[in-house]
Amino acid sequence: MIILWSILALLFLAALFGALLGYASVRFKPEGDPIIDQIDDILPQTQCGQCGYPGCRPYAEAIANGDPINKCPPGGESTIQELADLLDVEPLPLDAEHGEEKPKQVAIIREDECIGCTKCIQACPVDAILGAAKQMHTVIASECTGCDLCVDPCPVDCIDMVPVETSIQTWHWQAPQPDYKLIATDAGRSGEAA
């Protein structure tokens, strides 16, 4: 008899808390940007198309519809991690099919070789190239996302992608590295709680 009662009591409690939780999840549903905007916010906006979509937003839409989150090489590990956090899914390693994570680059036009064909301007997804037909062209370095799309169309191959170097203005301190941090079970892994 007592067993019956306790089972009943437990059932009642379970039902009660279940109802409470259910109510709370409806009542306090977090409001905010639609999920696509949030995903798009995380993507690096390089607009390079390496993910197989014509730009970051289309990929964001695809992710929202269930596409894997590991197709964006410019964003690399950190973007995948953020997406995984946002969507509450397992982070995957970057899909090598779409390219590998590289240090940030900018395009530089070797200006004396530029023939002013405007092909790079047409290719640049963020309008980071200035120039006019038959005039020398130049890249606005601060706006260039390093997407690489202007390199190929150039008929005289005068566009270089150069890695962005750390300057005194952009340098910052790195974290100290205490040697005792790695515990035996973690040795060999790349680090804990990255």
């Binding site: 390079c48 198309g49 390496q50 730009g55 290719a123 997804p125 690489d148």
Partner: peptide, 9 residues
């Protein structure tokens, strides 16, 4: 053109 550039790349 962007789509073309993507295709090219």
């Amino acid at each position: 053109p962007v789509a073309a550039a993507v295709a090219r790349s």
